[in-house]
Design a protein around this nucleic acid. Sequence first.
DNA 1: CAAATTCACTAAATCGATTTAGTAAAAAAC
DNA 2: GTTTTTTACTAAATCGATTTAGTGAATTTG
Lengths: 342, 342
Amino acid sequence: MKKTSLSDIAKHLGVSKTLVSFVLNGKGKEFRISDEICKKVLEVAKELNYQPNRIAQGLRTGKTNTIGLIIADIANPFFGILGREIEQEAARFGYRVIFCSSDENPEKSKQQIAMLQQSQVDGYIISPPKKSEDQIRSLVKSHIPLVLIDRYFPEIECNHISVDNFDAAYKATNHLIALGHKKIANITVNLDLVNMIERTEGYKKALLDASLPVDESLIKELPFSHDNKDVARAIKELVGKPGNKKVDAILFATSKLGINGIESITAMGLKIPDDIAVVSFDNPDAYKICISPVTVVNQPLKEIGKTAVQVIINELKHPDNIHKIQKITLKTDLIIRKSCGS
Amino acid sequence: MKKTSLSDIAKHLGVSKTLVSFVLNGKGKEFRISDEICKKVLEVAKELNYQPNRIAQGLRTGKTNTIGLIIADIANPFFGILGREIEQEAARFGYRVIFCSSDENPEKSKQQIAMLQQSQVDGYIISPPKKSEDQIRSLVKSHIPLVLIDRYFPEIECNHISVDNFDAAYKATNHLIALGHKKIANITVNLDLVNMIERTEGYKKALLDASLPVDESLIKELPFSHDNKDVARAIKELVGKPGNKKVDAILFATSKLGINGIESITAMGLKIPDDIAVVSFDNPDAYKICISPVTVVNQPLKEIGKTAVQVIINELKHPDNIHKIQKITLKTDLIIRKSCGS
DNA sequence: CAAATTCACTAAATCGATTTAGTAAAAAAC
DNA sequence: GTTTTTTACTAAATCGATTTAGTGAATTTG
């Protein structure tokens, strides 16, 4: 029971496959195929359960209606929500999505980009790892629609959508300061990417503006693939000996850090927010039912995802235009819960 | 700067594209192409940065090296982790994955299956929503490798991989009983699918085996797309008036229910586990840093994902064999934390 | 040394669509 | 009543690979 092709329909009716193609593409009128034949073609197509072969279509037209997505890890709810939104918005326009998790590894992302090129995807949405500048540059040269999300390379002229990380970290740190915290630490991840760098900058600026000292020893950079133990060690170093607290608040730059951090803090017998206050980027479920629900920097993930697809679709819809490069920065909002005290 | 094709390489060297194809597919020896020419072809391919057009390849060979994946929601960490594992295992064998979130909606899954058929995917991994029996049946008839995950339809002969949900719920309920809880509620979701039904059955059996009454009013079935409020209402009904507790423990059949439930319980001023004990299926991060870390039924997501891909690949590798249908049931483990008391 | 075999390659068909160029018959125009 | 235009279609090229069948030259065989 093999699949029905255009020719099958054509043979079935004794007409040419050209005609069938016209009719099924809604161009019956345009190519003045008689209403009678149009109707028959549609009937037979339904009867034989015709499903167009998108591969053949893709070869002929050069369009696959597919978007390639590279993110760090689809199992991470941050990217899960983003991916979901991208999938959904793409589907609205008839596009499918090939998902790739790069693990922030430029070797992997390089391979994945090559794979997506071979698959002839119509556009790319990428959250690029560090040291992937050359990959991105060569994609830009290929003139296939591309948008970077979450982070970008300032030196590369390319569409990107991200949030105002500086502002977000500034607001979060300020919130801690306003509540009387003075010894504020920053636990972050060494991605060497603008998004993380700006978070640290925003944190520092808030301290400076409040005339608080910036103590580099209170800034802990962990590798991307950190686990509980790494975070626990960082926190132990920060907290110091009991009775001689070096730190009274921590800003976590990702929820993965924050969740592990809170686990460690609790395991050490410290109470949030009394012994130590906590703010974190991202807004996972975990923070809602936490020992002390966590105050967070909430990112507009839906908007990032939706906009990314729209930028791609827009370029695909208007291929001739030379497009203005879209550099979109969205605002975050601070959701205040109980983890910073009052 | 358009892409390099086989013919470009052929022209560049003044040979036929047949030859180039042979060499690039590693069949140089087999078709006794001289070593000298082989070397040149490989050189030129690299020089021109040849990337095979997988679409053209797919059209000719009928193989796209693509697996279609349909799950309920990639933003749900349960499916996120599963998806991640599937992506990774598929990549090991040179397969890409098209992700689709069905929202447990059979209309959506129907469309997505049609889309995947048109995309000529080589295999399907599907977590089927209720009322999608006909879709699955017709896929089975198409003889394209297919494996169902998380749930399945007992009446359809088809590969599937899932966990022993009856046993899991039985163990979880038994754990509550062993700790002295007697009035145990079950909050679940009305998917009308074996996986959920078995969970409720396991729960009931544990009560029966302990000579505890099965009170249907303690079993709450919520719609799939529930929110905080739905769960809060269910819990209010279960708890009843203060001082007259109808329930002293709850088994949540999914983590989405559990997270919302714990939020509500806490909002009502009740303490876990003292006022009410809690066990839940699935093991999200949230449960680790919860008010009272949650005892859970942990599913072997990695194994489910990995095995699913292997079943598909195995059928693809041996297309001639009539394959034994694989019905795989994996064991869960109960991770005991603090939410049930002691 | 003619026939058979091996060697090193190539021509052309094919997959299933789209699309350009064209055609025979009918209708309209002059 | 011939020419032009319109109508309602079709043939064939094309996309970029794979693969079958074949070919001329060199080599081996008897």
